[in-house]
Amino acid sequence: MTFEHWLAFAAASAVMLAIPGPTVLLVISYALGHGRKSAVATVAGVALGDFTAMTASMLGLGALLATSAALFTALKWIGAAYLIYLGIKLWRAPVGGLEAASAPEMKPRRIFLHAYAVTALNPKSLVFFVAFLPQFLVASAPLAPQMVLFETTFLILATINAASYALLASAARGTIRKPSVQRIVNRVGGSLLIGAGLVAAGWRRAAN
């Protein structure tokens, strides 16, 4: 594999990661709802979720999802329902003054698990990796080292991307002072998550 192959993969991955999807919306919503303290837990959950999805794809789960309509549909609905649940919870979250708005409403462990579940259980990611990775593999070279390099590259880029969104959203949250504004932020974040869940539920296998 040449440097040009790796650079092409890195550039394509960076573009795909920058496009807001359910994971990015989750990161933004947690940053808006819980501040910078949630960033580490959220980003760690996203990174581990991407690692799980990529590894599962390389081991063949992605190919199985591509052929098993029942399994694909089940994972799709589980992930979509979970996003909608989180959105409703954030929409109904109580608000108060700045101190109350800044206090974490969830423990980092729960935030980590939520981010991991949403990222790892996204069937679109599993199928995407199966369709995406082979385009950059060199058949004449050993495949295992290439897959490890591509997975490591993607995970680094995904972590940077999630951290950037989290920090930007938490910085915007720092300007909030009034409970009425915090309520709007919670409802916007909740609406984003609900919308992401509805989009995930309506996403068709053929779209990939």
Rank of each mutant, 00 (worst) to 15 (best):
M1T: 03
T2I: 00
E4T: 13
E4F: 05
H5F: 07
W6G: 00
W6K: 00
L7T: 10
L7H: 06
L7S: 13
A11M: 12
A12H: 06
A14G: 05
V15D: 01
L17N: 03
A18Y: 05
P20H: 07
P20C: 06
P20V: 09
G21D: 03
V27S: 05
I28P: 11
S29W: 00
G33T: 09
G33Q: 13
G35N: 10
G35R: 11
R36Q: 14
K37L: 08
V40S: 05
A41T: 12
A44L: 15
A44Y: 05
V46A: 03
V46F: 01
L48D: 06
L48I: 11
G49Q: 02
G49M: 04
F51I: 14
T52K: 06
A53C: 07
A53V: 09
M54P: 01
A56H: 01
M58A: 12
M58E: 02
L61T: 05
L61F: 15
G62D: 01
G62R: 09
G62Q: 03
A63D: 09
A63M: 14
L64Q: 14
L64P: 09
S68R: 07
S68K: 02
A69Q: 15
A70S: 15
F72E: 06
A74G: 00
K76C: 05
W77L: 15
W77Q: 09
W77H: 10
I78T: 13
A81Y: 05
A81R: 08
Y82E: 08
L83S: 06
I88Q: 01
K89D: 09
L90Q: 14
W91T: 12
R92I: 03
G97M: 08
E99Y: 08
S102E: 15
A103D: 03
P104D: 12
P108W: 10
R109H: 04
R110D: 04
R110L: 10
L113P: 00
A115T: 03
L121T: 04
N122M: 08
S125R: 05
L126F: 12
F128M: 14
F128Y: 14
F129A: 06
V130Y: 13
V130H: 11
F132M: 12
F132S: 08
F132N: 09
Q135K: 11
L137A: 08
V138Y: 00
S140I: 06
L143I: 15
L143R: 14
P145T: 03
V148H: 01
L149F: 06
F150P: 03
T152E: 02
T152N: 02
T153N: 07
T153G: 11
F154D: 08
L155Y: 02
I156W: 06
A158L: 00
T159A: 12
T159F: 08
I160S: 12
A162M: 07
A162L: 07
S164F: 11
A166D: 10
A166W: 10
A166S: 15
L167K: 01
L168E: 02
S170H: 08
A171V: 02
R173Y: 11
G174C: 06
T175M: 03
K178F: 10
K178S: 10
S180T: 13
Q182P: 00
V185H: 10
V185L: 15
N186L: 04
V188R: 05
G189V: 07
L192P: 12
L192A: 15
L192D: 07
L193N: 05
G195K: 07
G197C: 11
L198H: 02
A200H: 01
A200K: 01
G202P: 00
R204I: 10
R204W: 09
R205I: 11
R205V: 04
R205A: 13
A207R: 01
N208Y: 07
N208G: 14
